[in-house]
Lab assay of single mutants.
Amino acid sequence: GKMTGIVKWFNADKGFAFITPDDGSKDVFVHFSAIQNDGYKSLDEGQKVSFTIESGAKGPAAGNVTSL
């Protein structure tokens, strides 16, 4: 299901971020390909987002990341 959280930090050079979920679970890795914005895919620290949890090769990662 959809979860919500806050972007903890975003590394534009490497194209990934971490989200701190609102439910208090541990921070979730985000690859820029999961960001659903049109055009430039970036996130801002402190931004509120919704996302799903996908199981990636290196463990859980956020999918369908959308700005709220």
Rank of each mutant, 00 (worst) to 15 (best):
G1C: 15
G1N: 09
G1A: 10
G1T: 12
G1H: 10
K2L: 12
K2R: 10
K2I: 12
K2Q: 13
K2M: 13
M3R: 05
M3I: 09
M3A: 06
M3H: 08
T4G: 03
G5S: 02
G5I: 01
G5F: 01
G5C: 07
G5N: 00
I6T: 12
I6D: 01
I6Y: 07
I6E: 03
V7N: 00
V7R: 00
V7S: 00
V7C: 04
V7A: 00
V7H: 01
K8Y: 02
K8H: 08
K8E: 01
K8I: 11
K8D: 01
K8V: 08
K8W: 03
W9L: 06
W9D: 02
F10E: 01
F10N: 02
F10C: 14
F10R: 04
F10T: 15
F10Q: 04
N11K: 04
N11L: 07
A12C: 15
A12Y: 08
A12E: 09
A12T: 08
A12P: 06
D13C: 15
D13N: 05
D13S: 09
D13R: 04
D13E: 12
D13Q: 09
D13M: 06
K14H: 02
K14L: 05
K14V: 02
K14Q: 04
K14T: 05
G15P: 01
G15E: 13
G15R: 09
F16H: 08
F16V: 14
F16Q: 04
F16N: 02
F16T: 06
F16L: 15
A17C: 11
A17Q: 01
A17E: 00
A17R: 00
F18V: 13
F18A: 10
F18E: 03
F18I: 14
I19R: 00
I19F: 00
I19C: 03
I19V: 09
I19N: 00
T20N: 02
T20Y: 02
T20W: 03
T20V: 08
T20M: 08
T20H: 07
T20A: 10
P21T: 04
P21G: 01
P21K: 01
P21S: 02
P21L: 06
D22L: 07
D23E: 03
D23S: 04
D23G: 06
D23W: 03
D23L: 02
D23Y: 04
G24K: 04
G24A: 02
G24R: 02
S25D: 05
S25A: 05
S25F: 04
S25M: 03
S25C: 06
S25R: 04
S25Q: 05
K26R: 09
K26Q: 09
K26I: 06
K26P: 08
K26H: 09
D27K: 03
D27I: 06
D27F: 04
V28Q: 05
V28W: 05
V28F: 10
V28Y: 05
F29E: 09
F29G: 02
F29K: 12
F29L: 15
V30I: 12
V30R: 01
V30G: 00
H31W: 14
H31E: 14
H31R: 10
H31L: 14
F32G: 02
F32T: 06
F32E: 06
F32R: 04
F32M: 09
F32C: 14
S33H: 12
S33V: 06
S33E: 11
S33R: 05
S33F: 06
S33W: 09
S33I: 07
S33N: 12
A34L: 13
A34G: 07
A34E: 13
A34D: 14
A34Y: 14
A34P: 03
I35L: 10
I35S: 03
I35G: 03
Q36W: 09
Q36K: 06
Q36M: 12
Q36A: 12
Q36I: 12
N37V: 10
N37W: 14
N37L: 11
N37M: 11
D38Y: 07
D38P: 08
D38A: 10
D38I: 09
D38Q: 08
D38R: 03
D38L: 09
G39M: 08
G39Q: 08
G39S: 09
G39F: 10
G39N: 08
G39Y: 08
Y40V: 09
Y40M: 09
Y40W: 12
Y40G: 12
Y40D: 10
Y40K: 07
K41V: 12
S42A: 11
S42F: 11
S42M: 10
S42I: 10
S42G: 09
S42C: 15
S42K: 10
S42V: 08
L43R: 01
L43V: 07
L43N: 01
L43A: 02
L43D: 01
L43Y: 06
L43I: 09
L43K: 01
L43H: 02
L43T: 02
D44I: 14
D44F: 14
E45W: 08
E45V: 12
E45F: 13
E45T: 10
E45P: 09
G46P: 01
G46F: 04
Q47I: 09
Q47A: 08
Q47T: 10
Q47D: 09
Q47V: 09
K48R: 12
K48I: 08
K48L: 10
K48E: 07
V49W: 01
V49Q: 00
V49P: 00
S50L: 09
S50P: 01
S50W: 10
S50V: 12
F51N: 00
F51D: 00
F51K: 00
T52Q: 09
T52G: 04
T52I: 13
I53W: 12
I53P: 08
I53H: 08
I53Y: 09
I53R: 05
I53D: 04
I53V: 08
E54R: 02
E54V: 02
E54M: 01
E54Q: 03
E54T: 04
E54S: 03
E54P: 02
E54W: 02
S55R: 04
S55C: 15
G56A: 10
G56N: 09
G56R: 02
G56Y: 09
G56W: 06
G56S: 08
A57D: 15
A57C: 15
A57H: 14
A57E: 15
A57N: 15
A57L: 14
A57Q: 10
K58L: 15
K58Y: 14
K58I: 15
K58E: 15
K58C: 15
K58F: 15
K58R: 04
K58S: 15
G59Y: 14
G59F: 12
G59P: 14
G59W: 13
G59N: 13
P60G: 04
P60A: 04
P60L: 03
A61G: 11
A61W: 11
A61D: 14
A61Q: 14
A61Y: 14
A62I: 11
A62Y: 08
A62T: 10
G63V: 13
G63S: 12
G63E: 13
G63N: 11
G63Y: 02
N64T: 10
N64Q: 10
N64C: 15
N64L: 13
N64R: 02
N64F: 07
N64A: 07
V65N: 13
V65E: 14
V65Y: 01
V65S: 09
V65R: 01
T66K: 01
T66I: 11
T66H: 14
T66C: 15
T66F: 00
T66R: 00
T66E: 14
T66S: 10
T66P: 15
S67M: 08
L68R: 01
L68F: 01
L68D: 15
